[in-house]
Simulated scan of single mutants.
Amino acid sequence: MFDIGWPEMMILVVAALVVLGPERLPGAIRWTAQSLRQVRDYASGATSQLRSELGPELDELRKPLDEFNELRKPLNDLRGMTPRSMVTKHLLNGDDSLFTGNFDTPGGTSSPDAATSYTPPAAAPPKPLAHNEKPPIDFDAT
């Protein structure tokens, strides 16, 4: 839920020590732990009460949520993909030597036919416009 590591935790403890002082810090920690435990007990009690009252109807309510989560699974697979990794994977067939500069590695395209396997077609230069000629309009781009 919260992404708090040890360095952040130590900063919070030091800040609490400065704000509360050493004499009130143990009581504040004790109060926070009791409050969190009580909230957790309330949440688990409400969940168990809801399950006991709804019974099999709860499964019917959860079915659309499960279907929605199944639809979201492909999106979760893309979560770790960055533009660089997508280009590397799909356009360069996993060869990241273009980004890393390591062209001599086995994953690099050091073979001559791999480097010349694709050449983009040469585009014809655009024709200059005549005097008072309006440029073409691309309605999809505007």
Rank of each mutant, 00 (worst) to 15 (best):
139 F>K: 09
31 W>S: 13
142 T>K: 02
105 T>K: 09
98 L>A: 08
139 F>D: 10
32 T>H: 08
70 E>P: 00
88 T>Y: 02
115 A>S: 05
98 L>Q: 06
8 E>S: 10
43 A>H: 05
27 G>L: 14
119 T>C: 08
66 D>A: 14
61 L>E: 07
38 Q>W: 05
53 E>T: 06
33 A>H: 03
6 W>T: 15
87 V>P: 00
61 L>D: 01
51 R>N: 10
83 P>S: 10
70 E>T: 09
92 L>E: 05
66 D>L: 15
24 R>Q: 15
23 E>D: 11
10 M>P: 01
43 A>D: 11
70 E>A: 15
17 L>A: 15
49 Q>S: 15
23 E>M: 12
93 N>M: 03
101 G>T: 04
40 R>V: 06
65 L>F: 09
56 P>W: 02
20 L>I: 00
39 V>A: 11
124 A>M: 13
38 Q>I: 01
87 V>Q: 03
107 G>P: 00
10 M>G: 01
95 D>C: 06
72 R>Y: 13
24 R>G: 03
96 D>M: 00
120 P>I: 01
107 G>K: 03
93 N>E: 14
130 A>E: 13
16 A>D: 04
15 A>D: 12
102 N>M: 09
15 A>T: 03
91 L>W: 03
34 Q>V: 02
107 G>H: 04
15 A>Q: 11
83 P>H: 04
52 S>P: 00
76 N>G: 08
78 L>W: 13
66 D>F: 01
30 R>D: 14
136 P>S: 03
63 K>T: 13
119 T>I: 12
83 P>T: 02
40 R>Q: 10
4 I>L: 14
97 S>H: 01
46 A>N: 05
59 D>I: 00
65 L>D: 11
11 I>C: 05
27 G>N: 06
94 G>I: 01
26 P>F: 04
72 R>L: 15
32 T>Q: 08
90 H>D: 08
44 S>N: 07
35 S>P: 00
16 A>V: 04
45 G>T: 07
118 Y>M: 07
8 E>M: 09
36 L>Q: 04
67 E>W: 05
136 P>A: 12
80 G>H: 04
12 L>V: 06
30 R>P: 00
67 E>V: 05
103 F>Q: 08
29 I>V: 15
104 D>L: 05
108 G>L: 01
36 L>V: 03
125 P>F: 02
74 P>T: 11
1 M>P: 02
135 P>Y: 05
112 P>C: 05
23 E>L: 15
95 D>Y: 00
130 A>S: 13
88 T>D: 06
7 P>N: 14
117 S>N: 10
75 L>K: 03
43 A>N: 07
131 H>I: 08
28 A>T: 04
11 I>K: 07
